[in-house]
Design a protein around this nucleic acid. Structure first.
Lengths: 196, 196
DNA sequence: CGATTTTTTGAATCATATCAACGTACGTGG
DNA sequence: CCACGTACGTTGATATGATTCAAAAAATCG
């Protein structure tokens, strides 16, 4: 219950909640401990929940035709993660969501979320803003992928998420940035040579 | 007023409106006629409105460092278009939105939208669902860009939007699919050769 | 029609992928 | 706490999908 405070704080950045609402909200989430390499979402199963990360790190990824994996999203403390398409349409997922560190997450399931939203305008507003920001973020990512070279994408990521770049295995980072592990390795070495 | 019916129908797919609400909603939009090549949004200006296309076609694009243009989004009849980041945060745009055909659009401006949403839960719900679907769509696009080759992206687009592929100049389509005009031209010719 | 915009073609080049092999690190069971 | 196995990262050589530049051909439009 202590730690869940961060969820309340996160939500109160967008909407303000009474004591009662805070309690109601927390009751709508269940806490879950996941170990490194454990899945919370798998292809062909419906993503039943939206997940808020209290502690740890997870990644969402898909497996391409030739078996290459493509990271779609990361989530660390104070981020949300799910298979968005699967969750909102309640259809089978195409993505895996897996813990890349031992993690603690708060899960709200689809029906509970619907009830919250119809009961109280505030929650509807919260999820509306969240969805808008998600869309805006994804639009920025599409633009970045279209306009920047592999090297530039790496540089930008490093600048924007220096912490994450450390926490995540390099092949995962490469798969997020849309390049091979080998190529990312070469880029890093070039960088290091230049510095010295 | 006749044509605006399609906006009402569009919105009623997600929420149901009383007569009064329909009127209120239509009054919140203003109709605008835009000629081919005319801009409705430009970099450095805040995107004041969200735009629903009644008739015609528009595209949103950015100009890269070396002057190449990258199409972020199309919109034809019954679609929405704006610079999403600019609109929701009310910050200067980075994108152009330009008509690629003579078009008629319905515009709602940011303040009016806010008022609608706070006045009536239903509108909040409508925009929440819209944002969610936008996010889901963009996620699919990110996945497609990461997992498919230029040729595959073209094939997929053709299958999914055969109409659009006709309406849009080829260099625009190429810039949407993340390849050069020349390369798209070659892909088409390869296809045609195979067919005959 | 002429003028502009769009598409095509060819040749050279480049960014990134692939494959294969080796080196390193890490975490798990004894 | 060591040792072994698996997971991760690096390096080299080669291949390829896609870009670039330049110019011609075709389509569109006022």
């Amino acid at each position: 219950m202590m730690k869940s405070q961060s969820l309340i704080e996160h939500i109160q950045k967008l909407i303000s909640l009474t004591e009662t609402e805070q309690k109601e909200l927390l009751d709508s989430f269940k806490i879950k401990v996941v170990k490194k390499r454990q899945f919370i979402i798998q292809p062909d199963f419906v993503a039943k929940s939206r997940n808020y990360v209290l502690k740890g790190a997870l990644r969402a990824y898909v497996i391409g035709d030739q078996g290459q994996d493509h990271t779609i999203q990361f989530a660390i403390e104070d981020w949300w993660i799910t298979d968005y398409n699967s969750y909102i349409y309640q259809q089978p997922a195409t993505m895996f969501v897996m813990a890349i560190e031992d993690s603690i997450i708060l899960q709200i399931d689809f029906e509970t979320e619907q009830k919250l939203k119809s009961k109280n305008h505030k929650y509807e507003t919260f999820f509306r803003i969240t969805a808008e920001r998600t869309a805006a973020y994804m639009q920025r990512r599409i633009i970045s992928n279209l306009t920047n070279s592999a090297e530039e994408r790496y540089e930008i990521f490093l600048k924007k998420y220096p912490d994450l770049a450390q926490r995540v295995p390099q092949y995962v980072l490469a798969s997020f940035l849309g390049m091979t592990t080998e190529y990312l390795s070469r880029l890093r070495n070039q960088r290091n040579e230049q510095k010295s």
